[in-house]
């Protein structure tokens, strides 16, 4: 007989992060759970040159929203703004509600399915912070598609199989 499968901790190709799910990028071109925040970029509905940089911290549930030129968002209300709501909705599409809620330490109901449910659970409050680091993460993200392909082998990618069942 064959030996039994090793525990997750002892496997070289153990899956740590579930792959993101594809979504339409037109309104919210960039979302990520990083640096202790839900953060991303929302395209302006009125000006094609402008984007809004929004973020929500996991540690104290404060949120920030400004343009890429560091002008404050005009739509800030208690609990968020339209950009933050769009960001939360797209994050749920990309990562699933459970992962977003876990990352933000949001106590959502078991049957929660939407970004609105996550925002309602955290009761976000406004605290201006720097939008620049998030915007530079977005620019870095965009730069990936500008890098050339190669036909030289990358043997290290054997540690990163495509697809796969999630633990």
């Amino acid at each position: 007989m064959n030996a039994a499968q090793k525990p997750w901790e002892e496997r070289s190709a153990a899956r740590v992060v579930a792959p993101a799910r594809p979504r339409k990028l037109a309104k919210v071109p960039f979302v990520e759970l990083a640096d202790g925040r839900l953060q991303g970029v929302v395209s302006s509905g009125s000006d094609i040159e402008r984007v809004y940089v929004s973020s929500l911290t996991a540690a104290n549930h404060s949120f920030h929203c400004s343009t890429n030129n560091n002008r404050p968002c005009g739509g800030i209300r208690s609990g968020g703004c339209n950009h933050l709501r769009a960001l939360a909705d797209e994050a749920v599409l990309q990562y699933g509600v459970a992962r977003v809620a876990r990352y933000l330490r949001a106590d959502v109901a078991e049957d929660a399915t939407t970004g609105a449910a996550v925002l309602a659970a955290v009761n976000a409050w406004h605290e201006p912070s720097a939008g620049a680091p998030v915007f530079s993460r977005f620019l870095r993200h965009l730069a990936y598609l500008e890098l050339p392909a190669t036909t030289e082998p990358l043997p290290e990618l054997h540690w990163f199989p495509a697809g796969g069942a999630v633990r």
């Binding site: 993101a20 799910r21 594809p22 598609l145 890098l147 392909a149 190669t150």
Partner: peptide, 16 residues
């Protein structure tokens, strides 16, 4: 073996 690789972003997955 013959390889081809490219940088991408996380939302490009599956047959994309």
């Amino acid at each position: 073996r013959a390889s081809v690789s490219a940088p991408k972003v996380d939302t490009l997955v599956g047959s994309g």
